Simulated assay, not measured.
Amino acid sequence: MNQNNDTNIKCPNSEHANNVKIVCFNESCKADRLQCIECIQNGIHITHLQHQQDLLFLFEHISDIEKQCEDLIIDLNKQMDMAYEQFYLLIGGIRSKYQKSKQQFLNLDSKQMNYFFAESIKFKSFEQTNFILIQQSIKDFQDSIVKLLSDLKLSELNYNQISNQDIDKSEELYKKGYKLYWDDDNYKEAIKIFDQSLIFNPKNCNSLYCKADSLRMLGQYNEAIVWADKALKVDSKDCDSLYCKAASLKMLGQYNEAIIWADEALKVDPKHCSSLFTKSDSLRLLKMFKQSMEVIEQSLKINPNHFDSLWAKGKCLQDQNQYQEALIYYKKALMINPNHEWTRDRKDECLKAINQK
Rank of each mutant, 00 (worst) to 15 (best):
D6I: 12
T7A: 01
K21S: 09
V23R: 02
F25Q: 08
F25C: 04
F25V: 10
K30P: 07
C36M: 03
E38G: 00
G43F: 05
G43I: 01
I44D: 14
H45W: 12
T47D: 15
H48C: 10
Q50E: 10
Q52A: 04
I65R: 11
K67N: 14
K67T: 13
Q68M: 10
C69Q: 09
E70R: 07
D71W: 09
L72S: 06
I74V: 12
M82Y: 02
A83P: 07
Y84N: 12
Q86M: 13
Y88S: 10
G92Q: 15
G93E: 12
Y98G: 08
Y98L: 01
Y98P: 11
D109V: 06
F117C: 12
E119T: 09
S120G: 09
I121N: 07
F123K: 05
E127L: 02
E127Y: 11
L133N: 13
V146D: 08
L154N: 04
S155N: 04
S155M: 06
Y159Q: 00
N160R: 02
S163P: 10
Q165G: 03
E171P: 07
E172A: 12
K176V: 07
Y178L: 08
K179Q: 12
K188E: 11
E189P: 03
K192A: 10
I193H: 05
F200K: 00
P202A: 12
C205M: 09
C205P: 01
L208D: 07
C210S: 13
L215N: 05
L218I: 04
G219Y: 03
D229M: 04
K237F: 04
D238E: 09
C239A: 11
Y243F: 05
M251Y: 05
G253S: 12
Q254L: 14
N256V: 05
I259S: 00
L266Q: 01
V268C: 13
F277C: 03
M288Y: 02
F289A: 14
F289G: 14
S292K: 14
M293G: 08
Q298I: 00
S299A: 14
N303L: 05
N303D: 15
H306R: 00
F307P: 10
K315D: 12
L317N: 08
L327Y: 06
Y330S: 11
A333H: 01
L351S: 12
Q356M: 06
